[in-house]
Simulated assay, not measured.
Amino acid sequence: MSTAPSPPKPRDGTTLKAPSPSPTPRHQGLPWWDRLKRSWFVLLLASPGVVVIITFHYYPLLGNVIAFQDYQPYLGIGKSLWVGFDNFRNVLEDPAFINALKNTLVITALQTVVVFPVPIILALVLNSLMSDRIKVIAQSILYLPHFLSWVIVVAVFQQMLGGTGLLNNWLRSSGHGMVSIIGNADVFKELITSQVIWKDSGWATILFLAALSQINRSLYEAASVDGASKLRQTWHITLPGLRPIIILLFILKLGDSLTVGFEQILLQQPAVGVHASEVLDTYVYNNGIVGGAWGVAAAVGLVKGIFGLLLVLSANKVAHAFGEEGVYKA
């Protein structure tokens, strides 16, 4: 009978030991209530945040029932008349809603195509700066507008591009004609898109810069040795490294795609008129808060929320098809 060969011994006379199996978590295989008991302190720390989310995010969702009622605030939900899907039919037959939906889709498409890539480009530019001092100064300048309210941002653009703003004052002093930008309905969508870029693009670069810092620098060194140019390094190393965060943020952007800046647009709506600036959020405000058609406003908000959820689920499925995790795993 043959015997198994003994393991080789090191030259110093010590005996090699077989690697011990990796330890399994102590709570694995325990019932869920026992796991809750073991994690009671962590759950206690998380409970205030859970209470806030339930109170201010999930509990108000029950108020969507007024979308199926002729809701009257002085009667309340319990005594208001149920009208079924009449509010939804009234919305679809309202030309103002069709106009608001069209404006929302146009602004969403414009901001998705123009605004979304800007933080990626800024992150690539900032990451390529060799001087840390210049990089810090540039980041501070780009981040600052994010902390300004839309009231201040709109006022700044009016002072710059308004009829008596810096641009038109300079044109008049140079003997040229005035340029109508603020209050011009024809360029309103481009104006609010430029405002979003100026205000939020710098702040959005933070996530992309964090993702860039996780890319292995040896990949760039190997590509440089192979003769790859900076452009090819960006295309074959940097952008693939950013792909997971780009897909994640794009999915989240789709879920919020029908929300295009309520406060920003409402502040400038009197100057350009309702036809050019009405979007779904201002339609809900003008019909619900101002007009008192609470059921109609709730119906629009409910449809917008359901449509956003479907967009997120669909985009997440597409992300899984391309091998990315997306917002959640399948």
Rank of each mutant, 00 (worst) to 15 (best):
123 A>E: 04
123 A>L: 13
102 K>D: 14
158 Q>C: 09
99 N>K: 12
137 I>C: 13
120 I>M: 06
131 S>F: 04
142 L>R: 02
159 Q>L: 15
141 I>E: 07
113 V>P: 00
140 S>W: 08
145 P>M: 11
112 T>A: 14
111 Q>T: 14
100 A>P: 03
148 L>W: 14
129 L>Q: 04
140 S>G: 10
108 T>P: 02
123 A>I: 05
117 P>D: 13
143 Y>G: 04
139 Q>Y: 07
101 L>F: 14
119 P>M: 10
147 F>L: 07
151 V>E: 14
122 L>G: 01
151 V>F: 10
128 S>E: 13
106 V>F: 10
152 I>R: 11
118 V>T: 05
118 V>I: 15
115 V>P: 00
141 I>M: 09
137 I>D: 02
137 I>Y: 08
102 K>M: 10
147 F>H: 10
114 V>T: 14
116 F>C: 03
112 T>E: 10
144 L>W: 12
158 Q>E: 14
144 L>C: 08
138 A>Q: 04
110 L>D: 08
137 I>P: 02
144 L>K: 09
136 V>I: 12
127 N>L: 06
99 N>D: 14
103 N>W: 07
150 W>Q: 12
153 V>S: 00
135 K>P: 02
151 V>R: 05
151 V>K: 03
120 I>N: 02
104 T>Q: 00
137 I>A: 15
141 I>V: 15
141 I>G: 08
109 A>P: 07
141 I>Y: 08
150 W>G: 05
132 D>S: 15
157 F>Q: 03
107 I>Q: 02
115 V>I: 07
147 F>Y: 13
153 V>Q: 01
106 V>G: 04
138 A>F: 06
158 Q>P: 03
110 L>C: 08
146 H>T: 09
151 V>H: 08
124 L>F: 05
143 Y>A: 09
154 V>M: 02
103 N>C: 13
155 A>L: 12
115 V>H: 03
108 T>C: 10
123 A>C: 13
106 V>L: 10
146 H>I: 00
144 L>Y: 14
134 I>Q: 10
131 S>C: 08
151 V>A: 08
104 T>S: 05
102 K>Y: 13
130 M>Y: 11
100 A>D: 00
149 S>W: 01
106 V>W: 12
138 A>T: 06
140 S>L: 11
108 T>W: 06
117 P>M: 08
113 V>L: 11
113 V>N: 05
108 T>R: 13
121 I>N: 09
154 V>Q: 06
154 V>T: 09
156 V>G: 06
107 I>H: 03
116 F>Q: 01
139 Q>T: 06
112 T>R: 05
138 A>M: 12
111 Q>V: 07
136 V>C: 05
135 K>F: 09
156 V>N: 11
108 T>N: 13
145 P>A: 12
157 F>I: 07
104 T>W: 00
